[in-house]
Design a protein around this nucleic acid. Structure first.
Lengths: 193, 193
DNA sequence: CGTCTATTTGAATGTACTCAAAAGCGGTGG
DNA sequence: CCACCGCTTTTGAGTACATTCAAATAGACG
């Protein structure tokens, strides 16, 4: 069953007893989305933390000129959503949209708080996950400073070949912080060498 | 006593009993550094998580051309260090250097693991802190995409006036992802208007 | 096949960088 | 107290990386 995928993900970080698994199974809700549907929209409050069972999603915001900026791309076994909105239960700054038909395993904010009491080690699990995401986010800041657009693109392809294949090129460009035109030129240059 | 400052910081997130405070006081080590000293150097393993009691620090790395890139600036009541190195107990990618005489409250990796067992709610504390830092780091990524250098500088000054005042301008520039020369020109332009 | 969206191409432009040099500033010692 | 030193900041000219805008081409889907 699909919920098991999330359970197994959690078990990579902390041990769970049979009972604890059952409690979790009750709290995890599966939700299906069609390609193009939004999981969260700017201004909404993100009520659930979402783990991707299958599919592909983009997290982006829109600036004053209507330009879209991609914060994150998520595929199977990644967490997604507007985490700032989730932890503060405050209006989302970002939109989360499905690029494919998608199945998410979700745990609501309230259930999380309840679960932290009944299964305290989930607190540890979430800490470990978020710690790593924090380090990755900081490394992304520095990579954007240190590396050229071409280098960032090459590293992206190497690190996330599946994302590169499943996500439209203009979103990859935005994720890398460059324009779609410039990414196109980079790719052309890479082919001619 | 200075250690109380860290205890109070923790108490902003979780309640601590008298006993728990005493256990913590034992594990927290104060360490003094002179201006210019390094808390961590690239390649070291960052053995302790450090909370700034007083002073000011910069976290930076050096690229292939010898150019320095500032990841973070820390003052009183901030955590500092190479967190990636700390959580993985792996060689540091970054250097952490004191810009002033500095006092840090440190908890070692091993003591942390012990503390998580004796005071499980510290797990929650750390999760809450790191969650916020993660969201801040992601917002920094997007701000660097969406905003001009001038806008980023203005927001930095507004958000962290003390950092702007205590940190050399060329480090602020690097933190913002621009050159010292360009920041100088931005400041000139802001004065003439 | 036509329509819609995504990608490519090219020319002009801009934001920010490089390099070199000068000016400012703070501390130290004569 | 001033002169000097090292380090930081400023200035200017030339340049580069990446953007904008407009148009052509390619792909996907009904």
């Amino acid at each position: 069953m699909s919920k098991e995928i999330l359970i197994n993900h959690i078990k990579e970080y902390v041990d769970l007893s049979q009972d604890e698994e059952l409690i979790l199974l009750e709290k995890i809700k599966l939700r299906r989305y069609l390609k193009g549907q939004f999981v969260t929209q700017e201004g909404d409050i993100c009520r659930s933390d979402s783990f991707v069972i299958s599919g592909c999603l983009v997290t982006f915001c829109v600036d004053g000129n209507g330009k879209e900026h991609v914060l994150n791309l998520a595929i199977e076994n990644w967490w997604t959503g507007d985490f700032g909105s989730f932890i503060g239960q405050s209006p989302a700054k970002y939109n989360v949209k499905c690029l494919e038909n998608t199945v998410l395993a979700q745990i609501s904010y309230d259930d999380y708080e309840e679960l932290f009491v009944t299964i305290p080690k989930l607190e540890r699990f979430l800490r470990l996950v978020v710690q790593q995401e924090y380090v990755d986010a900081e490394n992304r800041v520095i990579d954007n400073f240190m590396l050229s657009a071409k280098e960032r693109y090459l590293i992206f392809c190497e690190k996330f070949p599946q994302k590169e294949q499943r996500v439209p090129q203009y979103m990859v460009a935005s994720y890398l912080g460059i324009t779609k035109e410039f990414l196109s030129k980079i790719r052309k240059q890479l082919n001619n060498s």
